[in-house]
Each structure stands twice: as C-alpha cells, then as structure tokens.
Design a protein around this nucleic acid. Structure first.
Lengths: 194, 194
DNA sequence: CGCGACGTTGATTTGCCTCAACGATTGTGG
DNA sequence: CCACAATCGTTGAGGCAAATCAACGTCGCG
C-alpha cells in the first residue's frame, strides 16, 4: 500500500523500520474518481497528498474568471496549497482530479506529529520544497522569456505523456494561452504565410 | 555583526547560546561594492548569502540575450542559486549587486556542518523555502493573470522603496516588459486617447 | 566638457486574444 | 443501439496590448 511513497522517501532520507512505522501510521490511503474537487479556493486546505496513481490539475481563477493551470500532478508528485495548509488561511488554489486517483494523504496534525517524532522528515520536506522551487522557477522563466510556441514544444519535451492524459484546453491554460491559439500552433497556422 | 541574521533566525526557530555560537562560527561577513558580480550563470554557485545591507539583482539571460530579473534582494533576503549550490552543477542565474552590500555568507560545507551539528536549522531552511515558494507562486500568478500596468502598480505597492534603489530598466526586466513600455505606462501614454 | 547610461516619445509591427461559427468525438438516456 | 447533447478541438476575421525600431532629451561623472 505504501510502496510508492516509501520509494519516494528513500530518495531523500533513510529510515529505520520503526521510523517507517510511525510514518505509515500517520498516513491515510484514499481513492477518488475523476473530476473530483479536492480543494476549492477560499476553503482551508487541510491536507498534503502524494499521488500514487492518476493525474490532477492545480489551478487558480483570476478576477476575470479565467483559469490558469499551475501544474498537472501525476505519479510521485505532491499536491497541496501549502500556504493555506500551513497557516489555515483560505486557499487561493483549486485542485481537481483529471483521472481517477489513488492518493496518500497527511493531515496538518499528522505532519506536525511526524516532525516531532521523526525530525528527519524536516529534511525530506525541505528537499521537496527545493525541488518544487526549482521547477517553479524554470516555469516562471520560460513563461516570461519564451514565445507560446516554444513553451508548447518545451512542454511536449518535458512531459511527453501528458497530452494523452490532459485535455488540450487545460494545456492551453497551463501555457497561459487561449485554447484557440494552441490549436493554431499545433497546425502551424499561427505563422504568417510566405 | 550578526544581529540582523540573529533577528531573522528568531522568526523561525529558537536557539540556545551554544547553538548560536556554532552558527556564528560557520558564517563569514563580507562587504562588496556596487556592480559586483556575485555569480555568473555557468559557474557553480558556492554560497548562500543573507543581505544585511544593500540591494542586488538576481536575473536570468535567455538565448535571445534578453535579461529577466527574478527578484531584487534587499535587507533580510537570502540570495543563491539553490539548485547549483546544492548539486554543484552550473548555475542558471546571475547575481549582481546594485548597491554596495554587506552580506553574511555560508558555504556548502558550512551549511552541511550546520545541519549535522544543529538539526534545528533544517526547519529554518525549510521555512525559508516555504516563504520563497509562496512569493514565487504569487509572482507567477500575477505575471500570467495581470496586465503590465496592473503588475507595475502591484510592484509599487509591494516594494514602495525599490523604485528609488533600482534603475527603471531593471524594473521593466522584472515586470517582463520593455523599458519603453514601462516609460509609457508611467506617463499614461499607453492608453488610447479619447 | 563630452561621453555613456538612463529615460522618453512616436511610428510601425506583431503575437496573441476575442468572438463566432463550425466539425468531430464522446457519452448518455430513451 | 441509436439520437442527441455535451464536450472538445478547429478555423477565420478583426482587434488590442505590448514589442521593436529609431530618434531625441537629460543627467551624472571621468
């Protein structure tokens, strides 16, 4: 049941059998169907979850009502609205499953208990944040420094399997362009003819 | 000498006198003039630094040679190219002082030693990353969801003193717009006349 | 004083958006 | 199992925010 997350923890820290048991005792396994809302902006986010299987979307909605996807968590990613999860304040993000998902969930209390009982986990969550930070920075840089077409090609290269799992309009919302324009990029019709 | 950074650590963790001494013994104080290159993309980043006084820029140069400023570290911010600092791989970021700076520097070895001797610091660096992550996400969201003018107003509101410390063309590079267009926003000439 | 860095302004171009209409594909209830 | 709706993607016309290019003012400094 916890094989996937155990494999993940091993990439960050090594645990004794006992420590692993404490960890497991604080986790909850959960299966949800596709199109399930896991978090609605405005609510407090009371979980951090590891994706064992499936695909979701983390997005926000701006004042104009336009949705922007931040990332598409798949196997071995973590999902949460961390500022909300940490502080208890209302979340600014929305999280919804795209496929049926198998998740491993940890609550705020469980996480605090984990840090208290096995401080080693501070390190794991630090390393997780470090990776997330690097990803986000790369994403930011490509968003401001590249054209829509270049961003799309980079997306294909980085996540070659996602176009099969994520509807095209959500990919457009991830790239920060309109669904129509993505369609034009794909057909090459956005360039001036010569 | 270390008052500023001590005040910073207190916002994250509490230390005994001894722990604080260990911490101090691993730090190096450094003063650098303005326009000093602290890190060049391609080199390995061998430091993480706390800004006691002064102002710098952390920026990125894309293939087309365009510079994009990620942030302007001032008093009480940290600067580094974390992926490079952690892994030893070449940095993708550039760091340069804008004003003369007083820095407190910690090396890779010193940081490792710090974690080994005072594990409590894992928590501090985790919390730092959490803040940085939140900041970066907000920055990303406003970049994709707001117009150039709105972003500029937000920048003024958030960092009212920076326009006095950072040349306007760098602010444009931060906002992801051309220097000319920022000038037009400031004078109101970018709107259609009526 | 004169040169370089910084900022401004206007003319033109362009990348992407919006709106609208139209295929294709999927799924669902009768 | 078909009919019909809903969802998803495509295409074209027209518009706008911001880029680019070019020229010019201004200030601080060697």
């Amino acid at each position: 049941m916890f094989e996937a997350i155990d494999r993940y923890t091993e990439t960050c820290i090594s645990l004794t059998q006992e420590e692993r048991s404490v960890f497991h005792s604080l986790l909850v396994h959960k299966s949800v169907p596709k199109k399930t809302v896991l978090l609605r902006a405005g609510d407090a986010c009371d979980f951090e979850a590891f994706v064992v299987k499936g695909c979701a979307r983390v997005f926000f909605i701006n004042e104009a009502g336009k949705e922007v996807d931040l990332y598409f968590p798949v196997e071995n990613w973590w999902i949460s609205d961390l500022p909300s999860f940490t502080s208890g304040k209302p979340a600014s993000l929305n999280i919804e499953t795209i496929e049926a998902c198998e998740l491993i969930v940890i609550s705020r209390e469980a996480k605090a208990k984990l840090f208290a009982e096995v401080p080693k986990f501070e390190r794991m969550f630090r390393l997780m944040l470090q990776r997330a930070n690097e990803e986000l920075m790369n994403r930011f840089i490509s968003t401001v420094a590249m054209s829509a077409e270049e961003r799309y090609k980079l997306f294909l290269k980085k996540y070659p399997e996602l176009p099969n799992r994520v509807p095209q309009q959500l990919i457009a919302a991830y790239l920060g362009i309109s669904a129509e324009f993505l369609s034009k990029i794909r057909s090459g019709k956005h360039k001036k003819e010569d």
